[in-house]
Design a binder for these strands. Structure first.
Lengths: 243, 243
DNA sequence: AAGTGGTCTAGACCACCTC
DNA sequence: AGGTGGTCTAGACCACTTG
């Protein structure tokens, strides 16, 4: 019944993955119960085994199913955390957690990159970069301060208006032909300094989860260097790791 | 010249991946310079294209290369962080960072699981679990306190001696037919409580990076629930994320 | 026009598990 | 014995980039 669209530009294995995710979400496959076998899926969706396996591999990667040689494929207990393995922005993150969020723009300007930033973005020192500083609010209260240094393809530029209409920085970057697909990041616990404490409405010295990193496009070009100072008491970083 | 062993039980694509990783490590392929094409690799290693692609996909996943349709495959700037995407234990982690580490066993006993632990490990409350508490030292100073609650397959058991000879808990778990392959974990910043502060040689209220999670076997069975309290000033969590 | 990676097919053998 | 997922082959078409 749920046939795939062979005229669509979307790969078959991706359509199949989406279809199976929908069925998983609906609870059609119970946790730890066998899912349809690869052969069955080949028949019902009329695709080759390799295509089925590409879809299943993606689902396993996302932690939605597990496979046991000789036995079969099984659905996993649904968990919110599972989907967060992927690279996701603050807006996406919060949306998935069903939190009402807002952003207050504190700074927005083009400026010459200092040494550290230039190195992270693989630029010559003093090259122009966009600097964006935002206060993140969830359910009305401050949760984080976000610093972004953005490097755009030559000739491209961004405006405050664009950032606001796009909804998120990453959505905007996609439009600018600089879609982020991977990131190196570090997480550490630090104590809040006075300025930060004031912005986040915390006592000086309160624990802060600092997430810092560089985001790359598909071609390995760095587009953004960011620092996010999260209130320790209001933010948890969720992660699903596979071998 | 670097032929693959077809009699080996190790999959060809994995052998090929290892071979290419070795060549990358040696610096044979310069960053952002084209690597051999898939067709070339098919010829030189005498394998099919799918096998080549399986190997390349794994390398891309690990962040060692990137591929551009229509152009080719390219080596990436080598980074230490890249390899830490994988699931790794404290011992592995530190070894890769070239830090001399030691572990002091604080507690080791079998005890009935309380409600929270039982739920994480998917056990009935009061089921017996092993409780291990360790102080982690790097270069002589304390860096973390590690709490592990371990669930073993029926009939299996562990001893202090085994833990010490195996070197790490995970190495031991592999022997016990409970190899960890994936984990759900959360990271947050908290303030050090008095007992913890004393163990880690910190003032009360100092920032701590708490990493907490459940580790699963290949079959989706939880084996370990852990809490690691890391000194904020001596520990950074490094991560490479892909879309 | 030629070459690249992205996708897809049909078919095959294997180790392993269940019956 | 039959079914499962894991691996591997040979071949094909496509969109895209490069000369």
């Amino acid at each position: 019944m749920p046939s795939l669209d062979r005229t669509s530009p979307i790969p078959l294995y991706h359509q199949l993955k989406q279809a199976l995710m929908a069925r998983l979400k609906q609870g059609e496959f119970r946790p730890d119960r066998p899912m349809p076998t690869e052969t069955e899926l080949m028949r019902t969706y009329r695709v080759s085994r390799i295509t089925v396996r590409q879809a299943m591999q993606a689902l396993e990667q996302d932690g939605l199913i597990y496979r046991v040689p000789g036995r079969g494929t099984f659905a996993k207990e649904p968990k919110i955390s599972r989907r967060l393995t992927r690279l996701s922005s603050f807006s996406q993150d919060m949306q998935e957690r069903n939190v009402r969020v807002a952003s207050r723009l504190l700074d927005f300007r083009q400026e010459p990159a200092n040494g550290a930033v230039a190195e992270k973005l693989d630029l010559a020192p003093e090259s122009p970069v966009w600097f964006i500083r935002r206060l993140r609010l969830a359910d009305g209260g401050p949760v984080a301060v976000n610093l972004s240094y953005v490097r755009l393809p030559r000739g491209q530029s961004i405006t405050v208006a664009e950032l606001e209409t796009a909804g998120s920085l990453w959505a905007l970057l996609e439009e600018k032909e600089a879609q982020p697909v991977e990131a190196d990041q570090t997480l550490e616990a630090i104590a809040a300094q006075p300025e930060l404490a004031k912005l986040l409405d915390l006592p000086v010295g309160a624990p802060i989860l600092l997430v810092e990193g560089v985001v790359y496009t598909r071609w390995g070009v760095p587009v953004e260097y960011f620092q996010v100072f999260n209130r320790g008491d209001r933010y948890k970083f969720v992660l699903h790791r596979t071998r």
